[in-house]
Design a protein around this nucleic acid. Structure first.
Length: 721
DNA sequence: AAAAAAG
């Protein structure tokens, strides 16, 4: 009954085995993956199926492990029975250990150890904890936070935005627009505005082919987009568009904002509690923000920025294309296969050739669509070219990848390390929260790719232990987020430290003009790619909004997490995450919390427990909202609604990955309905609002229910609606 | 009011 056997999320198992046995090429090791071809999700069947059912594949590297099972197969064969028994006092889930269980249990440990050794990552043990736990909490954290809170948060934000809005915009437009963007856009837009748009959208995934295609494709980015936006913003948009006209790309922010201000901002603000902080902000010396009083600080209005125009690729365009066709070497192609990615996903097929060609690239592909490999594979390939015959000790890294959280950096490393190992390209993780010793040591030995978070990277640079002068390729993952306040400046400094003219790649599921500042400075003439047809119609995620009285909320949430299957609950605050996790545990539901108040080993442990099936419920803050891949998350619960539509999309994206089915429920108070509606519109998601109370039946069937033989899970899901 | 990211 082991639910685990049904969920091959033992992502690391293979790796573990390999690392513990040198000579992975020999039988029994990774090199022999062929023995488990069924694990790859790209069997012929899958491919055919995929052809018609939209995005049917895992995207992030982590999900493509050798023993990854196609979602379709899981659904068909596994998603019934014990794994889905209702969770409760029985604590399902950790009782049974199958054969593979054993491996699984061991796996993590050796995996970690191997990784630590190779990458200098702090051992998850007590050391790490000691450092951080102690100091940080007290000395560092508080102060740090206070500072930030005070100066940074306030001062920076406003100004930051203003700058952008102002100084940047204009110039930005002129510069950039100038060449490429501009030209393309104009024409594109005009045409599109009408005729193309509609059609483009409708068929987006579908038939789109006919005559429009050519034209459509080039401009499509736009076409699709525009319409989409209109719907979302409704009132505001139209006007906005007209004004903005042609050049909008980046520059449009102003107009956009203005328009929006009225409808979007207001509401947002009011709810938010508006002035709270306002009075506390003495630090702000100034009156720099005149309007501040009316709107103390809307940290971030949920503004919908323009999506960058891009060239769209369609799933059909990728049929029959192999990684080697795209320009990757056979070594990397083979490694990709072991990762469960025998053939490229659309976003990969779109960006890999351009990355290999040395172009700057902006890539947008929805959550779980394969972005990590989209940049990881080609940069690994590039590093095998023009390299010294010998790997020198202490050589400087030639590529760097920035991520917003430590966990994401580690996950990206896991994928790229696997690819790199196949061709002698070495990686290391440089993140905070752990001792720097091992990291420094690995740098001293010499690595080719550094993957990390901005803070520690800058720290080591300042210490003279990391030199980015030889970096030829820099990647910013979750780029739009990395361009937000607090991240932008460090990112800029780091990018400026790379070799002059280095290639830059920006990726995100929600890539929009928020990255304009970076693009202007670092990506003079980027190729912009996205995947066509990524709308709700082709999504495998179902959304619902549950409206509950605030006093019923905790009971409702508890009932929700009793549903079988793996569940991630998002909260707005760290304290609430802890409180809920505790409540669930007290109620007999094994769970853990994950947020920034925990030390790194606690964070790693919480994630690992979920990955290994030790727990089925993880209560996290937005630290886990972006990029983190966990196999088979049956349900994402938003205990607090997000403030931004992008956050909604990223949190939701923890489920339904690589074409698997997923569900998302957002619990809101009645007073929040309107705001929620608006947010959903911006996210272009339609979700029913369902009033609920404790004991409501609907709360008991939120994850895929046990399927009786012969009944397809999809049908069961539909029926349960 | 909050979250993340260095010590």
């Amino acid at each position: 009954m082991a639910r685990n056997e049904q969920r091959p999320h033992g992502a690391q198992r293979p790796t573990d085995r390999q690392t513990s046995r040198p000579g992975t090429r020999s039988p029994g090791h990774r090199g022999h993956r062929d023995e488990q071809p069924s694990k790859g999700r790209w069997s012929r069947d899958d491919r055919e199926r995929r052809g018609q059912s939209g995005p049917g594949r895992p995207t992030d590297g982590a999900s493509r492990r050798p023993n990854w099972t196609p979602p379709e197969e899981r659904n068909r064969d596994d998603r019934r029975g014990p794994a889905f028994r209702t969770r409760g006092s029985a604590q399902g889930g950790r009782d049974h250990q199958r054969d593979d269980r054993v491996h699984r249990g061991e796996r993590p440990r050796s995996f970690d150890r191997a990784r630590d050794e190779q990458h200098g990552r702090g051992r998850a043990g007590s050391d790490a904890r000691d450092d951080r736990g102690g100091d940080r909490r007290f000395d560092d954290r508080r102060p740090a936070r206070d500072d930030r809170g005070g100066d940074r948060r306030f001062d920076d934000r406003r100004p930051a935005r203003d700058d952008r809005t102002f100084g940047d915009r204009r110039p930005a437009r002129d510069d950039r627009g100038g060449e490429r963007r501009f030209d393309d856009r104009r024409p594109a837009r005009d045409d599109r505005t009408f005729g193309d748009r509609r059609p483009a959208r409708d068929d987006r995934g579908g038939e789109r082919r006919f005559d429009d295609r050519r034209p459509a494709r080039d401009d499509r980015t736009f076409d699709d987009r525009r319409p989409a936006r209109d719907d979302r913003t409704f009132g505001d948009r139209r006007p906005a568009r007209d004004d903005r006209g042609g050049d909008r790309r980046f520059g449009d922010r102003r107009p956009a904002r203005d328009d929006r201000s009225s409808s979007d901002r207001r509401p947002a603000r009011d709810d938010r509690g508006g002035d709270r902080r306002f009075d506390e902000r003495p630090r702000r010396d100034s009156t720099y923000y005149p309007s501040a009083d009316s709107k103390p600080f809307a940290p971030k209005q949920d503004v919908v920025l323009d999506r960058l125009e891009a060239t769209s690729i369609r799933a059909e365009d990728v049929e029959g294309v192999s990684f080697t066709d795209l320009g990757l070497g056979t070594g990397i192609a083979a490694a990709l296969k072991t990762l469960g990615a025998p053939a490229p996903f659309p976003i990969q097929a779109a960006t890999i050739p351009d990355v290999l060609a040395g172009r700057d690239v902006l890539g947008r592909g929805r959550t779980g669509s394969g972005k990590t490999i989209a940049f990881g594979a080609p940069i690994t390939e590039l590093l095998t070219r023009n390299r010294p015959e010998r790997r020198e000790i202490g050589r400087k890294p030639r590529a760097i990848i920035l991520a917003p959280t430590r966990e994401l950096a580690q996950q990206i490393n896991h994928t790229i390390m696997t690819l790199g190992r196949a061709v002698g390209v070495f990686t290391t993780v440089i993140v905070g929260g752990v001792k720097q010793d091992r990291q420094v040591e690995s740098l001293r030995r010499g690595v080719d790719i550094v993957i990390g978070t901005p803070g520690r990277i800058e720290d080591l640079i300042e210490q003279g232990r990391l030199n980015l002068g030889a970096v030829e390729i820099a990647v910013v993952d979750e780029a739009d987020h990395m361009c937000e306040l607090g991240f932008l400046e460090p990112v800029q400094r780091i990018l400026r430290g790379t070799r002059h003219g280095s290639q830059k790649l920006l990726f995100s599921a929600t890539l929009d003009s928020e990255v304009a500042t970076i693009v202007r400075e670092f990506l003079p003439t980027p190729a912009v790619h996205e995947v066509a047809g990524e709308d709700q119609a082709t999504s495998t995620i179902e959304h619902q909004v549950l409206v509950a009285d605030r006093f019923d909320k905790d009971a409702v949430l508890e009932q929700i997490v009793r549903n079988p299957g793996r569940i991630i609950v998002f909260t707005r605050t760290r304290a609430y995450a802890d409180r809920l996790a505790e409540q669930f545990s007290d109620a007999g539901i094994d769970s853990a919390s994950l947020h920034g108040d925990l030390n790194q080993s606690q964070r790693n442990r919480a994630l690992e427990k979920l990955r290994r099936g030790k727990i089925d419920v993880l209560v996290a803050t937005d630290v886990a909202a972006r990029g983190i891949h966990i196999d088979d998350v049956a349900l994402v619960v938003q205990a607090d609604p997000p403030d931004e539509y992008k956050t909604y999309l990223h949190r939701s994206g923890r489920t339904g990955r690589a074409g698997s089915n997923g569900r998302v429920v957002t619990v809101i108070a009645p007073a929040r309905r309107k705001r929620m509606q608006e947010l959903l519109q911006r996210a272009e998601i339609k979700a029913p609002m369902i009033p609920v109370r404790p004991m409501s039946d609907v709360l008991d069937s939120l994850t895929v229910p046990p399927v009786s033989a012969g009944v397809e899970p999809e049908l069961a899901v539909a029926a349960s609606e």
